[in-house]
């Protein structure tokens, strides 16, 4: 890997980490765990579309690990990993069908897949399917936040394109 590319990926990871940590200070009034904007997803979507698959996955993995350590929320790590894995796997596949002009759509699917991964992890960890009752709320929140972060990523991609 060239030094320039490595530096870019490091920059993306750092940006995602900062967004993630700042977002963790926003209190959410919802009584359902997992409902959030997921602003760091902007970077994930951008990386999926502008970098190779393993590079985007590395940015996400490092951000999740460091985010859990810096955020002091290690118990949430399993949920983040499960969600992050499904999310990026899904988006990398969808990238083949969805072009860059519609990456907000890939972001919506990614967000819903992220919530799906979290719910699966919660059902396994807590040993109760009762938590599935949260799933409909997470789907609604995933669609909305996925669309929002996707549109943000869309703006970033457009700006970068017009700057090149």
């Amino acid at each position: 890997m060239k030094a320039k590319r490595l530096a870019e990926l490091g920059l993306l990871t750092a940006a995602a980490l900062i967004i993630f940590i700042i977002e963790s200070f926003i209190p959410y009034p919802f009584p359902v765990p997992g409902i959030k904007l997921g602003l760091a997803n902007i970077i994930t979507v951008y990386a999926v579309y502008r970098y190779r698959a393993y590079e985007a996955a590395a940015v996400l993995l490092v951000r999740i690990l460091l985010g859990a350590i810096f955020g002091g929320n290690l118990y949430a790590l399993v949920y983040s990993l499960a969600g992050g894995f499904l999310c990026i796997a899904g988006m990398l596949l969808l990238k083949k069908v969805i072009d860059e002009k519609h990456l907000w759509l890939a972001s919506i699917f990614g967000a819903v897949l992220h919530n799906t991964g979290q719910i699966i992890a919660a059902v396994i960890l807590l040993g109760t399917p009762a938590i599935l009752a949260y799933y409909p709320f997470l789907i609604v929140s995933g669609c909305l936040s996925g669309a929002f972060t996707g549109l943000c990523a869309q703006i970033v991609v457009n700006r970068v394109n017009s700057g090149q």
Binding site: L94, I98, A133, P136, F137
Partner: peptide
């Protein structure tokens, strides 16, 4: 793309219906 948008809209609608039922 159109099919995928319809799928996304359907997922969203199912989510809302599910939330109301819950």
């Amino acid at each position: 793309i159109k099919i995928l948008i319809i799928i996304a809209a359907a997922i969203f609608a199912l989510g809302i219906v599910g939330s109301i039922l819950v």
